[in-house]
């Protein structure tokens, strides 16, 4: 009787996947709200065509966030589409976790080859800039400082937008 060698099934990182799902939801709603209220983000995405689809996802089969440009603003579509005009894929759930629980900034993560980009790199730059602005709305300065290269100033007008996004945009999807 010899020893039996057999396949080993890989585990599932439940906690991290859950966190990713939650953050994707928050981020998606925040984007949706921001494209309505923040003039800087509105200007950036104005160059995208109507029906532009942006997907942020975790490889190989992890959660994803789909944003679609409808009526001049980005709508959060949950996990609707598989493919799009701009697809940013985290190589694994660990990478996604680091970026989504903001421990590593998006630019740094890309520099460390933690995600791949499909689509026009120019659009990726636009998205990165929007993300930078959005992070300023979601997180306080001392966190943002680690994530982005330069923290934008927060005049009164921007603070009002931040309030709207956090209080109304994310919970109610407005």
């Amino acid at each position: 009787m010899g020893k039996k060698y057999g396949p080993i099934k890989s585990g599932v990182k439940w906690f991290k996947i859950l966190v990713a799902k939650i953050v994707f939801f928050v981020l998606g709603r925040a984007f949706q709200s921001a494209t309505k209220h923040d003039p800087d983000i509105k200007k950036e995405i104005s160059v995208w065509r109507e029906g532009f689809v942006l997907i942020m996802r975790v490889l190989p089969n992890g959660p994803r966030m789909v944003l679609e440009k409808l009526n001049g603003r980005l709508k959060y579509r949950g996990a609707k589409y598989d493919d799009g005009d701009l697809v940013i894929s985290f190589k694994n759930i660990e990478c996604a976790f680091l970026v989504l629980t903001p421990q590593v900034g998006a630019a740094q993560a890309f520099a460390e080859r933690r995600m791949t980009v499909k689509g026009d790199l120019g659009n990726a730059m636009i998205f990165t800039r929007c993300l930078t602005i959005l992070l300023g709305h979601l997180y306080p300065q001392f966190i943002c400082r680690r994530l982005v290269k330069r923290v934008a100033p927060m005049p009164l007008k921007k603070q009002m937008i931040k309030l709207v996004i956090n209080v109304v945009g994310i919970p109610f999807g407005l």
Partner: peptide
């Protein structure tokens, strides 16, 4: 500012 290489620049 839309060029991909800018994301690797140390400064904004």
């Amino acid at each position: 500012i839309n060029d991909g290489t800018l994301s690797f620049n140390p400064e904004e």
